[in-house]
Deep mutational scan, measured.
Amino acid sequence: MKMAVISEHLGLSWAELARELQFSVEDINRIRVENPNSLLEQSVALLNLWVIREGQNANMENLYTALQSIDRGEIVNMLE
């Protein structure tokens, strides 16, 4: 549920979040190519990849820290 809210509000910031979460330029470009027409779909794809990559370590605290690092703390505030 929280992931959906984050995806809805990320907009163009999804790529900046991807870099903050240590995704490569290739990963970011692949997300763009696979989801060409929708920032929402790109955001969802990023968060899904992050959960798959991090497994047990994919917790909201880590995601909140990354969001705050890219000056998107207002998204965190909405969810708390």
Rank of each mutant, 00 (worst) to 15 (best):
Q22T: 12
L12G: 15
S69R: 13
E74L: 04
K2V: 11
L67R: 02
G55K: 03
M78T: 14
Q42E: 00
L46F: 08
S7P: 04
L40V: 13
E8V: 04
N29W: 10
S43M: 00
V5E: 06
S13M: 05
D71Y: 06
N77H: 09
N48Q: 08
D71R: 13
Q22H: 05
R32L: 11
L10T: 03
Q22Y: 09
L63P: 02
Y64L: 09
W14V: 03
A15W: 07
L40R: 15
L49T: 08
I70L: 02
A66V: 02
V25A: 14
K2E: 15
E54S: 10
R32S: 10
A15Y: 15
L39M: 11
E26F: 06
Q56I: 15
I28C: 09
I31H: 00
D27S: 10
E16H: 11
G55T: 10
L40Y: 09
S69P: 05
S24Y: 01
S24F: 01
I28G: 01
L47V: 07
Q22F: 11
V44S: 15
V33Y: 06
L46A: 07
N62L: 12
L10C: 00
Q56K: 12
K2I: 13
D27C: 12
L39G: 05
L67N: 01
E41N: 15
M3P: 05
P36M: 12
Q56R: 13
M1T: 14
L17R: 00
S13Q: 06
E41K: 15
M60E: 05
R30A: 08
E20P: 00
R19M: 13
A45V: 04
N59G: 10
S7V: 10
A45R: 10
E16G: 13
A58G: 14
R72H: 10
S43L: 00
M60S: 07
G55S: 07
N29M: 11
L63C: 02
Q42D: 03
E8T: 09
L47I: 08
E54I: 00
L12F: 12
P36W: 08
R72G: 04
N57T: 10
E8P: 08
A15K: 08
N29R: 13
G73T: 07
S43V: 02
I70P: 02
L17Y: 05
A58M: 15
N35G: 01
G55L: 01
N57V: 12
A45T: 11
V5Y: 15
I70Q: 01
Q22D: 08
Q56W: 08
L79H: 09
N37A: 13
M60N: 02
D71F: 03
E74A: 06
G55M: 03
W14G: 01
L10E: 00
M60L: 07
V5T: 07
S7F: 10
M3D: 06
V5L: 14
Q68F: 09
S69M: 10
S69H: 15
L49E: 12
N77D: 06
Y64E: 06
Q42N: 01
A45H: 07
L46T: 10
F23H: 01
A58F: 08
E34M: 07
I75V: 11
E54R: 05
Q42K: 09
N77W: 13
E20F: 06
R19Q: 12
N29V: 08
